[in-house]
């Protein structure tokens, strides 16, 4: 390694900044625009972890990530207001997911209401628009619907269960490049 290179590195990581422990930064640094490379790095890393997990654990990977997501959903939603009504719970959920995921309730045109009863099941369709999981998967050329999606799935189920105090289940109906359709089954 040349001395010039070492000096260059030292130069890059040297500053005259005085950093005091009581000075808590109030903003992220650097600015969001400059974080693009970091975001891509995180997405690539996530993709790598998921790909390796799938290789090692096979189909079991989905169960692991679903469970992890569900646990996390319960943990996070513990601090949210408890709601018995589904509409209120979905409101709480969208606050919880803000900035990373966005969704809306949706119904096909032949259905009268958003809460649908069919074949003895009561469910609501949710269309997920913005989704960091989808971005990560597509960034890495991975299929949608696998273990990383299961983490989000578990997270949503855990949060809904925690908020409503009722058991819930989420099913993937369709995954697309711009939005995904999910079915929230209420028990």
């Amino acid at each position: 390694m040349s001395a010039g290179y070492i000096d260059e590195l030292h130069e890059a990581f040297h500053s005259d900044l005085v950093y005091r422990s009581e000075e808590i930064p109030l903003e992220c640094s650097p600015r969001p625009k400059e974080m693009e490379q970091t975001l891509h790095g995180v997405m690539k890393l996530n993709g790598l972890v998921i790909r390796s997990l799938e290789e090692i654990a096979g189909r079991g990977a989905n169960a692991v990530t679903y469970r992890a997501g569900k646990k996390f959903g319960h943990e996070v939603a513990k601090y949210f207001q408890k709601r018995e009504d589904v509409e209120g719970a979905l409101h709480e959920l969208s606050d919880l997911l803000r900035g990373q995921y966005s969704f809306e309730v949706w119904k096909p045109e032949d259905k009268e209401t958003f809460i649908i009863e069919e074949n003895g099941e009561t469910f609501i369709y949710l269309v997920f628009h913005d989704c960091i999981v989808r971005q990560t998967l597509r960034r890495n050329g991975l299929d949608q619907g696998g273990p990383l999606c299961q983490t989000l799935f578990g997270y949503v189920v855990g949060a809904i269960e925690e908020i409503t105090g009722r058991k819930a289940k989420l099913e993937i109906v369709h995954t697309g490049p711009n939005a995904c359709l999910k079915k929230l089954v209420l028990k």
């Binding site: 045109e109 369709y125 628009h129 995954t175 697309g176 490049p177 711009n178 939005a179 359709l181």
Partner: peptide, 14 residues
């Protein structure tokens, strides 16, 4: 034929 049933996934574009 059923544009109101579209939920905007854009799979068709892909």
């Amino acid at each position: 034929v059923r544009p109101n049933n579209c939920m905007g996934c854009l799979s068709c574009h892909e």
